[in-house]
């Protein structure tokens, strides 16, 4: 160990990073069990037990928040999970190398668009007066719709723009998995006279199943951790009934209204549920398919 002191030294700055910016905040979650007082600080503030959690559970916002969070991420999971798999399977059938490359490159590109730009694009396209979508709808005789003002449209707008942006990126993982399938399996399928579709069903799909399982575990495990950034930008007073999720609520209660203790409790509730979900999905996957992320 003494011989390699230099290695131990260079680990110190990154280690400090993790301790200060990742672990110290975990300690700070005691705020959830306290009544935060600016003057007394986190550790000097009085303990209040579960008060902040009870306030949240009895809050009329509780069920709407949980419902919105789960509905948006559930929708995203149902629609967004299979599409990259299908895209990868289809791309794998393409014979022309150039066409395959072009589709792959183009569909990957939107992944690099920032959240702010993505939301800007959505707003410009869906704008009730000048937006492309409404102009096109008017042209074929339909009335204009204020898409972002319709609470019922919110989830679809969120989910499908997300798929537009990330499907090509997510497909790469599956393409890599398909590339790793044993070629003799294809030869065997050919000898058996399998059609292209049968080959996908009996060789490709089973071959990438472990990858599919891992991505699924990660996706299900993060349903409560649905991205704050995009939803927050898409929110407006008209669609708030469907667009306020736990993460955006924590932001507005905690940082905008400076209700630190309560917001910490809400955030902690979210993280704990998330951790439980991830561990149980991982456990289930381990039990039934022998794949797991740890």
């Amino acid at each position: 160990m003494r011989k390699h002191w230099q290695l131990y030294m260079i680990v110190v700055p990154p280690l400090l990073f993790f301790l200060i910016f990742k672990y110290y905040p975990m300690l700070n979650t005691v705020l959830a069990f306290k009544d935060y007082n600016v003057i007394k600080g986190i550790w000097g503030s009085p303990w209040v037990g579960m008060k902040n959690f009870n306030l949240f559970f009895d809050n009329p916002m509780f069920w709407p928040l949980v419902k919105n969070t789960l509905l948006i991420s559930g929708y995203l999971l149902l629609a967004g999970f299979p599409i990259p798999i299908l895209l990868a399977l289809m791309l794998n059938e393409v014979r022309s190398g150039r066409f395959k490359k072009v589709v792959q490159m183009v569909s990957f590109a939107p992944y690099f668009i920032s959240t702010v730009v993505m939301v800007s694009i959505i707003m410009l396209f869906l704008s009730p007066r000048l937006g492309f979508v409404n102009i096109a709808m008017n042209a074929i005789g339909l009335d204009s719709v204020n898409f972002l003002g319709e609470p019922g449209m919110f989830r679809s707008i969120y989910v499908w723009s997300d798929i537009w942006q990330t499907a090509g990126y997510s497909a790469v993982i599956y393409l890599a998995a398909i590339a790793g399938i044993d070629p003799t399996l294809y030869e065997a399928a050919k000898v058996d006279g399998a059609s292209r579709f049968q080959k996908i069903l009996h060789v490709d799909l089973p071959g990438i199943l472990p990858t599919i399982m891992i991505v699924l575990i990660l996706n299900v495990g993060s349903v409560m951790a649905i991205g704050f950034e995009k939803i927050y930008l898409l929110q407006n007073p008209l669609n708030l009934v469907n667009s306020e999720i736990i993460a955006t609520y924590v932001y507005s209660v905690g940082l905008l209204n400076a209700n630190y203790s309560f917001a910490t409790a809400v955030g902690l509730f979210n993280s704990v549920i998330n951790l439980i979900l991830l561990t149980s999905v991982n456990g289930l996957a381990k039990r039934f398919s022998n794949t797991s992320i740890w």
Binding site: K22, P25, M26, L27, N28, L31, V250, G254, T264, G267
Partner: peptide
């Protein structure tokens, strides 16, 4: 830290 995080407010307090 991938599985569990302190969350928005506790991190903000550290910063």
């Amino acid at each position: 830290t991938l599985l569990f995080s302190g969350g928005l407010i506790p991190t903000y307090m550290v910063v």
